[in-house]
């Protein structure tokens, strides 16, 4: 198998699995109304009166991912949460990618000293972890105050998505601008400038075709980063869409999320890790799997980029054929290929 087919295979398998997860989640919610199966008590098969266990159940053949404390099957909860987690991560990454694309390309084109200054200023983002910035910025928004929220759920979700996109943008912009700079240093760009090509012409005709594939490498990485930030935030107690806290002294549940999704499940059940490890591990495994699939897509794209450009292949073909013409006298069976077979 050539490297190209391998890369394409990797990309298609990984992306179709992610799509399958998303579609499965949507189908479950809309055609089955998202009703999560419940098992409160398990009876013995031979003797229906014999109780062999009660919730929460650990993973078994009948219940692959176990149940939570209320007997809900974890697998279906995870499936239902997939659309929100994946959708939000994609939305955040598309937004931050748009920000970063515009600013990165502008920065890549500019040559002045101000670019050096802004780039070094942005380097500070490398030394402050993004999840910490996100925590500090979002805490007043997402942590329910004593008087209750003054914002609605939709407002909070929208604001959170925009803020997270803004936090992710600077490092992405640095990446894109350095890629742009690398391409702009090539010889053919210099000759375009000499021949009188304008900046927009260079961007559209020369930069974009070269940058396209690299952007496809960067994009899955941003999705991974945004998934990780949402997960980190929920470890710190800030669930996506807000944390519901009860301030009564008596009979209080621990803080809980408003929305069912992977990150908040992981963050919430981390405390139960020592007893009911499967409730934590189920969503965690799915999140990890998604991240691995995304990095598989990115890796496949890298493999595609590594392949020599088409021009090169053509010239080598020409070389080969000219060599073959020289050796025309001693042709072997290998030199002939089957062309049509209809």
């Amino acid at each position: 198998m050539s490297k190209k087919t391998k890369s394409i295979l990797l990309i298609s398998i990984c992306s179709s699995l992610i799509l399958l997860l998303l579609i499965g989640s949507l189908v479950f919610t809309f055609s089955f109304n998202g009703e999560i199966p419940k098992t409160n008590i398990l009876y013995d098969k031979d003797d229906p009166d014999q109780i062999i266990g009660s919730m929460p159940f650990p993973p078994s053949l009948q219940i692959p991912f176990g149940t939570d404390r209320d007997g809900n099957h974890m697998f279906y909860r995870i499936l239902e949460g997939a659309q929100i987690t994946l959708g939000v991560a994609l939305l955040i990454s598309v937004l931050s990618f748009l920000f970063a694309f515009v600013f990165g390309i502008l920065a890549g084109f500019s040559k002045s000293k101000s670019k050096y200054i802004t780039q070094t200023l942005f380097t500070s983002f490398y030394f402050i972890p993004q999840s910490i910035i996100a925590y500090n910025m979002l805490h007043p928004l997402l942590w329910e105050p004593y008087e209750g929220f003054t914002t609605t759920l939709t407002e909070r979700i929208l604001l959170q998505i925009i803020i997270l996109a803004g936090i992710l943008a600077p490092t992405t912009a640095i990446l894109i601008s350095s890629e742009t700079k690398q391409i702009l240093q090539k010889d053919f760009i210099t000759s375009t400038i000499i021949l009188g090509g304008g900046k927009f012409y260079i961007f559209y005709k020369h930069l974009l075709p070269h940058l396209k594939l690299r952007l496809f490498i960067i994009f899955p990485k941003i999705v991974i980063q945004s998934l990780l930030i949402i997960a980190h935030l929920s470890y710190f107690g800030l669930y996506f869409g807000g944390t519901d806290i009860c301030y009564d002294d008596l009979l209080c549940d621990p803080p809980k999320p408003f929305i069912e999704e992977w990150a908040s499940m992981i963050g919430m059940y981390y405390a139960d890790l020592h007893i009911y490890w499967w409730i934590f591990l189920g969503p965690m495994l799915f999140l990890t799997l998604t991240i691995l699939l995304l990095s598989g897509v990115s890796k496949g794209m890298e493999g595609l980029l590594d392949i020599k450009p088409i021009k090169h292949v053509k010239s080598s073909k020409v070389l080969n054929s000219s060599k073959k013409e020289q050796k025309a006298s001693n042709l072997t069976k290998k030199d002939f290929g089957l062309v049509h077979r209809s």
Binding site: I117, T120, L121, F122, T123, S124, F125, I133, M137
Partner: peptide, 21 residues
């Protein structure tokens, strides 16, 4: 020069934190 610029960058980021309060 770079150190002072990055410190300035850190200050700008830190100042952005209470913006939403």
């Amino acid at each position: 020069f770079e150190i002072s610029l990055i410190i300035a960058g850190i200050m700008l980021v830190s100042a952005a934190i209470p913006l939403f309060q």
